[in-house]
Amino acid sequence: MVLSGWEAVFFWVFSIAAILAGLLTVMARNAVHSALFLISSLVSVAALFILLQAEFIAGVQILVYVGGVMVLFLFVIMLVNVGAEERGSEELFHRPRQVIASLIFCFLLAAGLLFAMNTGYRGLQKRDQAALAAAQQQRQQREQALPAGATGTARITNATEQVGNSLYRFASLPFEIASVLLLVAIIGSVMLARTLRQEASADDVAPEVLQEEKVADPELAKLAATEQN
């Protein structure tokens, strides 16, 4: 798989954008700026997915990550907004020695990954050379058979159809497990984010805790009492 021409140009544009936005996510002073930079990084990676002919995953990435998860992040940032980082009264990073140690670790990690890829990829290429050449021919024939798009410059692929087929045929059990996981996550986050008053009105507080907190908040006792009637 070799990109060429404009595909290569777009590859470099989007990969450099993804890396720069990722760096700024980590370094931004304001948490809202961090979230916005993370959104641009995710969108750039979605563009890379389109270059890799994974249109469905690119769409899911934008809908789920940018549309769902990042909105959740922004809401939480606004709920717990302290603003101390922006005013400069709180440090952004840990103490300098900790930062130096972790940067050395990250440098070693990156160097190890790149070195391992260098040798590994060469071996992979050597192994798959014949298969790649043979498959190239077949793929061109298959692409010629696909229907042309309305503008005539591109062809309509069935990649999303293949993903759906594969998802329901080979991964139907993980699919069901994922739905249970999401249900647990929904219920869990609702349970975690309740206030003490909400917990008391649902009669879900330990008696000792209720006894202690009654002193500070007399409303709590009433909530618990109404529940018992």
Binding site: V26, S102, L109, A110
Partner: peptide, 13 residues
């Protein structure tokens, strides 16, 4: 990108 993420986890407060 992975390394940048690891650096963020290790260094940010």
């Amino acid at each position: 990108l992975f390394t940048i993420g690891v650096a963020g986890v290790l260094t940010r407060r």
